[in-house]
Design a binder for these strands. Structure first.
Lengths: 215, 215
DNA sequence: TCGAGCCTATCGATCGATCGATCGGCTCGT
DNA sequence: ACGAGCCGATCGATCGATCGATAGGCTCGA
């Protein structure tokens, strides 16, 4: 049974990768077991149901993302810098943890009801940080944008796409990637100010910390 | 067996909706049959395999999108206006045909090899029109952007997200939606010129025509 | 005009395979 | 001796797909 501290690492690692690239319904229990070097029966020593495993993955990833966003929001008063950091956070998270983020972004529909609401609530709380940064920027006359809801969704989707194509082994460094997305977002908001490299590096460090990665 | 003109409309309509909201692997043959008011056996009178049905849906949607993009590219020399029209085309298509576009965007991985390459080729040809508009604009000094590949992917993903949330019954009209996205995209490209409403309306008409919708 | 032949559309029944999940039991380290 | 870790065997359910059959309509030649 899954402990409170989370599922056994092997199992979770195998699951997140398979769910990300074949989808939840496209991944079989036996396939999952093989990827974790276990029999399908042993799998159930570590997890509840297949769906519990999915819910755990999503809850964990969203909690980390939400914590990071809260930290940025609490420490960055200027809406321009705050939004730039949120963009960098979102982009770096999607670039460094493409499997987890793709599962979060694509598999909400595979969750049934008790867990689904919880995950949606977490996602909404995270998006609310973006909404606040955008409305603060508009109230301060720093952002020129139409409907703030449309803008928020457009920017979020733009950044999420990173998980589908970015490779850390390619020519583009993570810092460059984050800087480009921050620049795109700020320009889209009608804001000519450039995001400082230091601000974006902060986001990168937070991502590394909340995921326990070498920075 | 599927005729050259495409699968029976009832079947295709049921399939595209189910595939869009439960995923290809999350949709069963019996569920599909029920949605089309047929027995699961009768379904096979109209289609080949379940995967053939998916491939047909994707091929059809991508062909329509590619034709429309070609028409715009062939008739719009100025890269700013061309990109604005491509954005409007993409956004209107995703807003008016959310089921088809979500299937195209999310289910490529469910296709196996002969069909998958064909679909990827169509998608690449479509994206090439965006790449040309962006590189033309940069060459003409109209667009200020970093890596053109990053910019292209960012803008495409931004626009594709529309299929996940837009409702034609909401407060936001399709014209406003297209105009907002075009403005976001042009600003992101460092281009202050406003897209003309007439240009965007052209894109809306093309969408209605290629999909046989009332305009 | 009739009926043989054929085609389309439909279905109930069922195929073998695989699905997610459980069972009882084995083997260790403690 | 006991529980954590693990597995072969197997459960009932469902999967995608196929079977043979039926009913109705169209087109012929006689």
């Amino acid at each position: 049974m899954a402990l409170t501290g989370g599922t056994e690492p092997r199992v979770r690692r195998a699951a997140v990768n398979l769910f990300a690239d074949k989808g939840f319904h496209g991944t079989g229990i036996r396939e999952l077991a093989q990827a974790a070097n276990l029999s399908s029966a042993s799998l159930y020593h570590y997890m509840g149901t297949k769906e519990d495993l999915l819910a755990g993955i999503m809850r964990d990833a969203l909690t980390r993302l939400l914590d990071a966003a809260g930290e940025i929001a609490g420490s960055t008063a200027d809406p321009r810098a705050r939004l730039a950091k949120l963009v960098a956070l979102h982009v770096c998270t999607h670039a460094l943890r493409p499997a987890e983020t793709q599962v979060v972004d694509n598999e909400v529909r595979s969750l049934s009801e008790p867990a689904r609401h919880e995950v949606v609530r977490l996602r909404d709380a995270y998006e609310e940080q973006w909404a606040l940064a955008i409305s603060d920027g508009m109230a301060a006359g720093r952002f020129v944008a139409g409907d703030p809801g449309v803008t928020r969704r457009a920017l979020l989707e733009m950044c999420s796409g990173v998980a589908r194509w970015y490779s850390p082994h390619g020519a583009l460094s993570l810092d460059d990637l984050a800087a480009q997305y921050a620049a795109l977002a700020l320009r889209a908001l009608g804001c000519v100010d450039r995001a400082s490299g230091a601000d974006l590096a902060t986001a990168g460090e937070i991502v590394a910390r909340v995921w326990g990665l070498p920075s």
